[in-house]
Nucleic acid binder design. Structure first.
Lengths: 156, 156
DNA sequence: TTTTCTGCAAACGATTTGCATACAC
DNA sequence: GTGTATGCAAATCGTTTGCAGAAAA
């Protein structure tokens, strides 16, 4: 992520916090920074964020991390995802709201999670909105199967 | 569900169990029966299955229910879904594997979950398989937004 | 200075596990 | 008979909460 984008993310956090009478704290700043610094295809659990903070010598309480990833999710800065491993994970949400999210490919063999950077659900969403009257704001799409590496190893 | 289909489901369970050296037990039979008897748009948690069994005077252990819904999921008879309410839920998987699953529309206001009975992801899946080499077996799609009832109640 | 935030430890709730007994094959 | 399944209770693990002190605004 470019330095400009990073600065934007942080300014965005400040804005959204003050809008709702929340306060900017070092904890919130550094938690967001963890996501900015992490690879784009990382999906971090609260505990993982907590550990990464420790590695940077920030000794925040685990409960604070839990509270704040959830807050950042409510502010629209993080996106919540569950991959069925029993822990809630978060990732930076797309800056461009038009883009919605990418999709996740989950390998049933090696458990690897691959990002697929295309949306292509516009049509489906239109169809659903017309047929059901449901107003769609976002979506979460997971594909289960075998990744290129495992495809041939698995008997089927 | 037609009586023929129900019988088929139960025979299917028997077959898949013996294939893998598992045994058919009253517990497994009645747990599957709960899903057969429940509305198609119900997504039952282990505890809910346990309660429904109790209502039918089957006093099985809760741990047994947990073990067996997970087993049925591994056998491909049930599908696991998580809606973010902290409990894992299950539903009968589609008998026709071509159909994959329907999609779920989740209302952010009233938390209602609506099924949408169309797939329309064939194209997207082909595209993903070609571009990534990933072999797709199934998918799970959730749309978040406001249902027809809540759409107008919500400010924004 | 007022309100929100944090850290700690305790509480919670869903799920899992160990083990002795019961049961399907 | 043999190996798997069950039931129970205890253990586990991610997450939440209450509360007193700390720190933003």
């Amino acid at each position: 992520m470019s330095e400009t984008q990073q600065l934007f993310k942080m300014a965005d956090l400040r804005g959204r916090l003050s809008e709702r009478k929340y306060k900017m704290t070092p904890q919130r700043k550094e938690i967001l920074q963890i996501f900015i610094d992490s690879d784009e295809d990382k999906h971090l659990s609260a505990e993982e964020v907590y550990d990464l903070l420790k590695q940077k010598d920030f000794d925040f309480g685990l409960a604070t991390v839990y509270r704040n990833v959830e807050l950042l999710n409510n502010l629209g800065i993080l996106n919540k995802i569950e991959f069925g491993d029993g822990r809630t994970r978060y990732e930076l949400s797309a800056s461009d709201p038009q883009l919605h999210q990418h999709h996740h490919l989950i390998c049933l063999n090696c458990k690897k999670i691959i990002e697929f950077e295309e949306d292509l659900l516009e049509n489906l969403e239109c169809k659903i909105e017309k047929k059901s009257g449901f107003k769609i704001l976002n979506h979460e799409v997971k594909f289960f199967g075998y990744c290129a590496d495992c495809k041939n190893k698995v008997k089927k």
